[in-house]
Structure formats: structure tokens, C-alpha cells
Amino acid sequence: MKKLLILIFVLSAFILLNAQNKQEEKILLIRCDDIGMSHSVNLAAKELIDAGLKFSTSVMVPCAWFDEAVSILKEAKNVSIGVHLTLNSEWKNYRWGPVAGVSRVPSLIDSLGFFFPSRAKFFANNPSVEEVEIELRAQIEKALKSGLNISYLDYHMGTAVDKPEMRKVVEKLAREYNLGISRYFDETDVNSMYSVPLEAKYNHLVSVFDSLDSEKINLLVCHIGKDNDELSALIDLNDFGLKEMSKHREAELNALLKAILSNDFTNRKINLINYSELIELKGLDKMKSPIETGY
């Protein structure tokens, strides 16, 4: 009887400790945008993949380095891939245009056949919603035909969901292709490293880890890259763009790599998930627009 009571006590303590650990665990989804934009961004994504980080990454289909991104991501483990729906082209001397072809979507482009650099200029051109659907569909189709295992959609610079009628197009395409949409699973955005000073990014990242909500699915959006001649040559055509963009992107990359090497995720009981896992956990039928939920 005494041995039985001891066994029951030990099992109860184990169950209680396990429950407490589960309660302390925090869920974090890291989403790295703009993959395929440039060779240097692709190199940064490969570093995170090689370091074994579980994350989601959003591919820019209209960009010149999309094919290289496909080659890298096809071999990646623990990575969920999304289409970074693109209707803007914001870099001086490095511009891109529609996948569907300029003749099919004339209201989405400038006189040289490129996407506009900002949302304001895009909407000032009175874009056709029908043409928006043609172009976004073409981007999704190209991503799927490349052989990538696409699981979700998101939106470069927010343009594709800026207006209610365009958001409906994105939602329609997600249903049609059985894809999730980032921020449609009640994720909570945490403070990104984007505009944090270069030398403070890692400390900021650690503070974000410490402030994660254990009751929420926390979403951290990152912009990574390598500070080389290619990326440092890109100048944002928008006044609100970051100066020394390439240095900021490499600093974000280095902060994530340092977090991996320092075992910050394990030490802080952070459960990393990606969008493929989140979709499997919640189901596409549970998606809801953040506009409807007041997000």
C-alpha cells in the first residue's frame, strides 16, 4: 500500500509539473518575407534553413531571383512556403512587373510596365479589381507550377488587402487553391526588428521572446538579407523606406542566428511552428478576416 501511495504521488507530481510546463510554453510563428526578391535575400534564407530554424517564408514570384528561391526551398525542411502577393516594385534601378503580362493588366503598371513603388501611387492609377485577380492568380499559378509546396498567402506592403474589394479577391483565391492567409488564424503580431537600430536588434528580439503571450499564437514578421554589393545598391523609392536597408536585413538575420546558437527558443520554452502546422492544427475552415475580428 505504501509503495502504491508513493507511486500515485510521483505520478501526480509528474502530471502537475507537465501541465505547468505546458502552460508556460509560448507559441511563436516566424515569417520571413521577400524571398526571391534578390540573391542576397535568398542566401540569408538558406542560412536560416541550414541552421535548422523552423519558420515560414513568403516568396515574391514576379522577381528575378524567384527561380533560385525555388531551388533552395524545394530542399528545405521545417519550412512552410507562402506566396507574397506582389503589386508593388519599390527599388530604384531594380524594378519588376506583372507575371500575367503587361497587356493583360494595364491598370496595375506605370508607363514602363513596372508595378508602382507605393500603395498610394498604385491606387492613384485606379487599378481594376478584375486585373488584380488576374495578376494574383498568375502569381499563385506560377508558384504552384514551379513545384513549391505552397500552404499560405500574404501580401507585399499590404497592397493586396488594402481595400475591401481586393481583400475579397485574396480570400476567394485562398478558398479556390485551398491555401491559408497569414493573420487569418487569430495570430497576434509582436514588435518586429524592422526599424530597431542595428546594434539593438538581438536585444530587442530577446525582449520580444520574454513578452510573448502564452495564450496566443505570436507572429513575428522578419526581413532578412546579406549586406553585400547587390543588396546595398537597392535604394527605396519611398520616403518612408529604411536607410541602409541591407545592413538592417543582415542584422535581423544575425539576431535570429544568434538566438538559435544561444538556445533562446528552448531556454524560454518557445514552441516554434510554421503555417503548414498552424493550418493543420486549426483547419482552413476556421480562417477569419482580421478585419471582422477587430484585429
Score class of each variant (00 low, 15 high):
S89L: 05
Y202A: 01
A233Y: 09
I140H: 01
N78V: 00
A19P: 00
E141G: 10
F122M: 14
S211V: 05
I49F: 11
G147S: 05
Y184S: 03
F114Q: 05
L73A: 04
V132R: 06
K288H: 12
H204G: 02
F66I: 00
S12Y: 04
F114E: 10
K286Q: 10
S211Y: 05
V105N: 08
L281M: 11
R95D: 07
I273E: 02
L11C: 04
P164T: 15
L48I: 12
R175D: 15
L17Q: 13
K226Q: 02
L253D: 11
L253K: 08
D50T: 13
M37D: 13
N18M: 09
W91F: 00
E141W: 09
I150P: 06
K142P: 02
H204E: 04
L48D: 14
K46V: 09
D285K: 15
A69G: 04
D239Q: 14
A138E: 03
L7T: 09
I270S: 04
D33P: 08
S38I: 08
D229M: 00
F116M: 04
S289W: 07
M37T: 10
S151I: 08
L87G: 01
T293S: 06
A255K: 07
N42I: 06
F66Y: 04
K77S: 10
N42R: 08
V79Q: 01
F116L: 08
V83T: 06
R119K: 14
G158T: 07
E90W: 00
K269Q: 05
A13C: 11
E250S: 06
K92E: 09
W96K: 03
K247D: 03
L278E: 01
C32W: 04
I6K: 04
A51C: 15
E187L: 00
S151V: 13
S111R: 08
L48Q: 12
K145A: 10
G113Y: 12
N18I: 12
A255L: 14
A76I: 01
V206F: 13
Y202P: 01
E250H: 09
I260G: 09
H248Y: 11
N228T: 10
L85R: 09
E141R: 13
M245C: 03
S118I: 00
T266S: 12
F116I: 05
H156L: 10
S107A: 07
